[in-house]
């Protein structure tokens, strides 16, 4: 089969078409409703009419294209659906990120393996208490000033290569994660790759709420790994605060 940059022609053609994330029935309803709103709005005129015209036009566009950006934001990605299916969760939010740290693999592995270090760079983790060789208790900040807690177990521990963990039965928020270490080329230290996935508290709606609070998992993972690098390379998470009281103990926001 002919390939275009490694894709089959079929999938290349599919990818070239506008994406669709709405069913036919929903498209029909959206388009028809949009037309009604737009007609009413045009007759009404004024500012309210103008705004309603735009809303109507958006609904028509949603109907004709079969694509809705709001639906896209609320939907799980294919990888997340796969994780949810595999883990037996209602839904999943997942993120992965990577960073290079100018320290030997042994140092990076040893630092991360001592899970009590995690709150030093994971902004949302309030504390991790070691229970025994593989188990620990996590307290994590959630939106609206709440905290959630769970026990977690290290399920895989290959020194200087990979650590995997998952929450124990009965966790308030079920989650899994792994981190991999490998030497960076040219003696530049360690390439770190990490992935986390959790079952959002209130399904995809809970995920949207979290996003509105700036706690989107992809950004979290990116920020956490950057702070891991800062702590290991410089011994601190740099903050522009002018006074100790202003230096957010939970680390500065990256935005």
């Amino acid at each position: 089969m002919a390939l275009i940059q490694g894709q089959s022609v079929d999938s290349a053609v599919r990818n070239a078409l506008p994406p669709r994330n709405l069913g036919d029935a929903e498209r029909l309803v959206s388009g028809a409703l949009g037309a009604v709103v737009a007609l009413w709005a045009i007759r009404r005129g004024g500012l309210a009419g103008g705004l309603a015209t735009l809303a109507g036009a958006a609904m028509i566009a949603r109907g004709t294209s079969g694509y809705c950006p709001v639906t896209e934001t609320l939907s799980a990605k294919p990888a997340e659906r796969q994780i949810a299916r595999k883990q037996g969760w209602r839904s999943a939010a997942a993120a992965a990120s990577s960073v290079t740290i100018a320290k030997p693999v042994e140092d990076v592995y040893r630092f991360f393996r001592d899970v009590a270090n995690l709150p030093r760079f994971m902004r949302h983790v309030e504390s991790v208490t070691v229970i025994d060789e593989t188990r620990s208790h996590w307290v994590v900040r959630a939106p609206l000033g709440r905290t959630v807690e769970w026990d977690a177990t290290i399920t895989e521990d290959r020194p200087n290569e990979r650590i995997g963990w998952r929450s124990d039965a009965g966790a308030q928020v079920r989650n899994i994660g792994w981190i991999e270490f490998r030497p960076a080329p040219g003696g530049r230290g360690t390439e770190v790759r990490a992935a986390i996935a959790y079952e959002p508290l209130a399904g995809q709606l809970g995920r949207l709420v979290a996003q509105l609070w700036g706690e989107e998992p992809g950004k979290q993972a990116h920020d956490d790994l950057r702070r891991l690098k800062q702590v290991l390379e410089t011994g601190e998470v740099p903050t522009p605060a002018l006074r100790r009281a202003d230096a957010d103990a939970a680390m500065p926001d990256a935005a």
Binding site: K219, R226, K229, Q230, E233, T234, V237, P238, T239, P240, P252, D253, A254, A255
Partner: peptide, 10 residues
């Protein structure tokens, strides 16, 4: 430097 901009997202 990788580490001195605490607000790198922008």
């Amino acid at each position: 430097c990788d580490n001195t901009n605490p607000k790198p997202l922008m």
